[in-house]
Each structure stands twice: as structure tokens, then as C-alpha cells.
């Protein structure tokens, strides 16, 4: 074990260039890891806000929910919550797929996660915008 450095220098699977660069296969693992953490931290206060809103709205009728969704602050927080949630979801699912899906299936599954997270996020943002329009149409109570 002690003199492995001299023994294995040539026989490792890594090229000298890759050893010098110190990066993994794609060189993008660090940003993936960091984005997962940063979105996670941002989601803590946003989720706390969401729990408070759920308590405010639980059992409410439709008009109350629409009025709530029409407030710019609520709409902003909702969009921030959902965009970060689905970005964090995408990053987490990608790690799971990297661990368990191998071979030819890997790339299409990774792409499907990206597409799914993007569409889900867009649908969520659109729902908030539609809620704002519904609120603008509703008669003032």
C-alpha cells in the first residue's frame, strides 16, 4: 500500500491530463452539487411560508383562494417556491438516475427528467398567472 504511487502511476484508468485537471468525467459535478444545496436552503423559508398559507386557506371557499392568489406578494412567493422546488426535484432525480439507471437507458431517462421538470415548472407558473387573471376578473368582495 505504501509505494502505490510509484507502482500504479501508469496503470490507472485516468490520463495524466485528467489527473492534472482534477475533474470528474464531465467536470460539472461541483455545480450540480452546489445548486442542489443552494436550492435546498432557499426552499426552507419558502416551504415555511407555504405551510403558513396552507393554514390560512385550509377549508376556504373558491373566492378566498382566488383573492389570495391575486396578491402580487403571494404570486411572487408561489412562483419562487415552485420554480425552486422543481429545479431541486430535477437535480435530485438526476442523482438517483445516475446511481440506478445504467447503459443505454441512462441518457433518455436523464433527458425525460429535464423535460418533465421544465414542463411541470412552466405549468405551475402559468397556473399562478391564470389565478391572477381570475382574481382581476372577480368582483371585489
Amino acid at each position: 500500500m505504501n509505494d502505490m504511487s510509484s507502482d500504479l502511476r501508469v496503470r490507472t484508468m485516468r490520463s495524466q491530463l485528467s489527473r492534472a485537471q482534477g475533474l470528474g468525467a464531465a467536470g460539472s459535478g461541483v455545480s450540480h452539487w452546489w445548486t442542489e444545496r443552494v436550492t435546498a436552503i432557499a426552499l426552507v423559508p419558502l416551504s415555511g411560508w407555504f405551510v403558513v398559507q396552507v393554514f390560512r386557506l385550509a377549508g376556504s371557499e373558491h373566492a378566498t383562494v382566488v383573492r389570495w392568489g391575486g396578491k402580487p406578494v403571494n404570486a411572487t412567493m408561489l412562483i419562487a417556491l415552485m420554480v425552486l422546488t422543481f429545479r431541486h426535484m430535477q437535480l435530485g432525480l438526476e442523482v438517483i438516475v445516475d446511481d440506478y439507471v445504467h447503459g443505454r437507458a441512462h441518457l433518455p431517462v436523464r433527458l425525460a427528467i429535464k423535460v418533465g421538470a421544465l414542463l411541470l415548472g412552466l405549468f405551475a407558473v402559468l397556473a399562478v398567472i391564470r389565478l391572477m387573471f381570475a382574481s382581476a376578473r372577480a368582483p371585489a368582495a
Partner: peptide
């Protein structure tokens, strides 16, 4: 739990969309 939370978030979006659709 991460996967289930994400699934729940998707259901939450459906709830929001239902509210936007109308009464």
C-alpha cells in the same frame, strides 16, 4: 421522501390549477 415530496408538489400544482380554472 424526496421523490414523494416532488410528487406531492405536482399534485399541489394541480390544486392551484384547479383554483385558476374556476369554481
Amino acid at each position: 421522501a424526496g421523490v414523494v415530496s416532488a410528487g406531492g408538489a405536482a399534485l399541489g400544482v394541480l390544486w392551484l390549477s384547479a383554483a385558476a380554472n374556476g369554481p
